[in-house]
Amino acid sequence: MSSRQLAMVMDLNKCIGCQTCTVACKTQWTNRNGREYMYWNNVETKPGDGYPKKWEALGGGFDATGALQDGVVPSKYSEYGVPWDYNQDQILQGAELQPGTDPTVGPNWDEDVGAGDFPNSYFFYLPRICNHCSNPGCLAACPRSAIFKRDQDGIVLVDLNRCEGYKLCIAGCPYKKIYFNPKLSKSEKCIFCFPRIEKGLPPACAQQCVGRIRFVGYLDDAEGQVAKLVNQYKVALPLHPEYGTQPNVYYVPPMTGPRKFDKHGKPIEGSDRIPLGYLESLFGKAVHDSLKTLHAELDKRKAGKPSELMELLIAYKHSDMFRLGTKAPEGFKLPVLK
């Protein structure tokens, strides 16, 4: 659908849930003009309801044949959460810190709750932006052709002149990463910071990431770290590939979760609290090979042998992690995952 495709890889092993990406995005794009409730970038705790609440149960995406599926448009009141303020100006006069409303849901409502029983409970963080899919559900759902993929980089954008605010894109996106702006009566979404991309800069969320978990580059740039993680080592995987949209944000799955404790409180060697089946439900069957590769490369490095993959995941230099000024090569083809 586009000549080239920009992609982002996020290494979940290094996400500390600090929300710096969320704030970078919010201050850049969504703190005004009807976007206050939106989080184009959010970091949610998995397992968990996420944002908007229970988005994985709200439909959209495609079935196995490629037919768009029905979806639900979330409510600001019951699924996104209404932004609220605290009475910070009154606490010096002796008041207790309280929210101005009685909130019942919000973007980080179940932070760090996770799953499993103490002491073997577990969770990890999942940062989410628009996946700038190769077959976007939002684009497929729009009856007005108001959503398009930019030819030069595959960024998915809304033509606000054509958008009539029907919200079918919101029902169609299985990741619920396109939002309705009630002030403009139009849909808006993560724009992959395209004005920054055009200046050779990565999106604000990637630039500001404290844990340096985000890599940005073109899938066809074989020398780039994104292409190496996605195409060469195949350790970076799309979220919910079964939704059928061909997402272009890829995740290195959590491989070094804490070990389980036995009944005496001693860690069990070789155990992992995060069930493999849960990771498979998020990243598909390819997660097994990805984890195998990651562990093999880690063991290599532990044995004192060189590992390009481990070096790469250390994320030494922004200039290597963000490769934007490249030209399209001849004969590129995205490999298909098992």
Binding site: S134, N135, L139, A141, C142, D220, Q246, L334, V336
Partner: peptide, 23 residues
């Protein structure tokens, strides 16, 4: 058609970036 993009062809080969063509 009201929405030419609402069905893609999973049977067709995807393009180089993994996008399937409209059915």
């Amino acid at each position: 058609a009201v929405n030419p993009n609402a069905h893609y062809s999973k049977a067709s080969p995807p393009d180089k970036n993994g996008a399937y063509p409209n059915a």
